[in-house]
Amino acid sequence: MVHAFIMVTVDTGHAEALVEMVRAFDHVSDANVIAGNFDIVVEADAGEVYDVINSVATRIRGLDAVTDTKTYVCLE
């Protein structure tokens, strides 16, 4: 099992709408609007790293108003 966090930066005013969309994606276990250097943190669980990258991170990057993403895969 692969566990990862995807940090998402979005255009001003779009975080709440996007977090609702992202919560419906396959392999997403949680997503929240946060304060700080990023706007949304997405928690993902999948069988393989490929599933996290392809099913979650790539789809998030393709959403309108997303300006940047950083994916952090947990090692344990």
Rank of each mutant, 00 (worst) to 15 (best):
T67E: 06
V49L: 13
G47H: 08
Y50C: 15
G62M: 01
N54K: 12
V33Q: 08
E76Y: 06
L75Q: 08
V66A: 03
A24G: 09
R23M: 13
G62F: 00
C74T: 04
V8T: 13
G47S: 11
M21E: 15
H3N: 02
A57L: 03
F5C: 03
C74G: 04
C74L: 09
A15Q: 11
T67V: 11
G36M: 07
A65F: 13
R61M: 07
V28C: 02
F38A: 14
G47P: 14
A4F: 02
N54E: 12
N54A: 13
F25S: 04
A17N: 09
V10I: 11
R61L: 04
N32Y: 15
T9P: 14
Y50M: 14
N37G: 15
A24W: 11
A35V: 14
N37E: 15
I53V: 14
T69G: 05
V19T: 09
S29Y: 10
H27N: 10
E20Q: 03
V42K: 03
V73S: 01
N54W: 11
V56G: 01
A46Q: 05
D68N: 14
D51Q: 05
E20H: 08
I34W: 03
V2K: 12
K70I: 13
E43K: 11
V22G: 08
D68H: 13
V28F: 02
I60K: 10
A65H: 14
L63K: 05
A17P: 06
S29K: 07
I34D: 00
G47A: 10
G13D: 01
V8A: 12
Y72S: 14
E43Q: 10
N37F: 12
R59D: 04
C74H: 05
V66K: 04
E16F: 04
R59C: 03
D45Y: 12
H3E: 02
D11V: 13
A31D: 10
R23W: 08
A65M: 09
V28E: 04
R23K: 15
S29E: 08
D64P: 10
E48M: 15
Y50F: 14
V19N: 02
V56C: 04
S29Q: 08
E48H: 14
E48I: 15
E43Y: 12
A31N: 08
F5Q: 06
F5W: 10
L75H: 05
L18K: 01
